[in-house]
Nucleic acid binder design. Structure first.
Lengths: 182, 182
DNA sequence: TTTTGTGAGTAAGTATCACTTACCATACTG
DNA sequence: CAGTATGGTAAGTGATACTTACTCACAAAA
């Protein structure tokens, strides 16, 4: 998994060969298949590993926030931060796993679902506590937030652009919470 | 291209073989390489084809709208509609092409850039015309809109869920323009 | 002390593909 | 009619994900 992770820093999943992974780990190709069902399974397990840290960090920060607005702001900031700090993680999650249906039966996807469910719960509490408008569509709000986060990172991941996490996270929160209409 | 397109309805890019594409088109594998540099080039050309219709439809509709808010609403609605009506197009654009850097040198990506540039231009006019707050970050607003559109379609594309285009497009516009804070 | 079982590891395949090469035939064009 | 694109094929080839059959170390059991 370490060998694969470090190779992912430099190229995409498809252009990394099993021979390379094995060579880089100083074992033979066959051994990979003692521990992983196939190459994709290795990918999903590496993603799952990263996702554990990702959610742990977010959870630890969210508990310090009293308001739902504050909690969502923390989630937006922390997500952007994780994506920016961890290229391999974000490359896998945003660019590599989605094109194959297998992923959605993997353990890693279970964690994604949990993360998403958590956001939804916060939004629903926010509506009850009247922080948000009563007619807010919670699923849709989640989509807008998640979509904005992911799209904001794409340029950084694909072209290696710099991302001003603080500015972008505040900007997204501002648009979503207050709107842009004059 | 037709043969490949119809195969894409059922499975993902990687699990479609050149033999299948050729067989389905009743030609031999070699012929594919007379017209396309490689398998990915075929993918990009199919995407480019679809993208032409996509942008044509949007442009025709946008000219009928006077306000920038109205224009953006039309873009959101039309984008969702195209994604929903054309599974192959959206699968390719949202799930298949991004994982490889080659795409960003392809002609299809040029069209994506144009579409994105168009949205940015509308936002900037909107700021000047004071439809939007003066301190609106136009790039960020575009990211939020595009991210929301794309994320809203993912469930539909991946799991085949139904998408209520009218409700979702109105919902996205409402969140982005008016915000959700009570 | 002997036996048995198991996990770590390997070497040498094999099947599948994307892609190439060397041809063939037909229609148009100067 | 010669020459040359154009549309097409058949038969490779090399890379690569995955498999198989095997060794070895070593620990627990007998």
């Amino acid at each position: 998994m370490n060998s694969f992770s470090s190779l992912m820093k430099g190229k995409d999943f498809h252009s990394i060969t099993t021979a390379e992974i094995a060579g880089n780990a100083a074992v033979t190709e066959g051994l990979i298949y003692k521990y992983f069902k196939d190459k994709k399974d290795l990918l999903y397990q590496v993603l799952g590993d990263h996702f554990l840290n990702f959610t742990a960090k977010i959870k630890a920060r969210v508990v310090n926030e009293k308001t739902c607005v504050g909690q969502l702001e923390v989630i937006i900031f922390s997500s952007l931060e994780s994506y920016a700090d961890n290229r391999v993680f974000s490359k896998i999650l945003l660019l590599e796993v989605r094109n194959s249906l297998e992923f959605f039966n993997s353990g890693a996807y279970g964690m994604v679902k949990e993360y998403a469910a958590n956001i939804l719960a916060i939004i629903e509490v926010g509506i009850k506590k009247e922080e948000f408008k009563a007619d807010t569509d919670s699923y849709l709000l989640r989509k807008v937030i998640l979509g904005a986060i992911e799209h904001a990172c794409l340029g950084e991941i694909i072209f290696g652009r710099e991302l001003d996490i603080d500015r972008v996270s505040k900007g997204i929160a501002n648009i979503v919470f207050n709107g842009v209409k004059a």
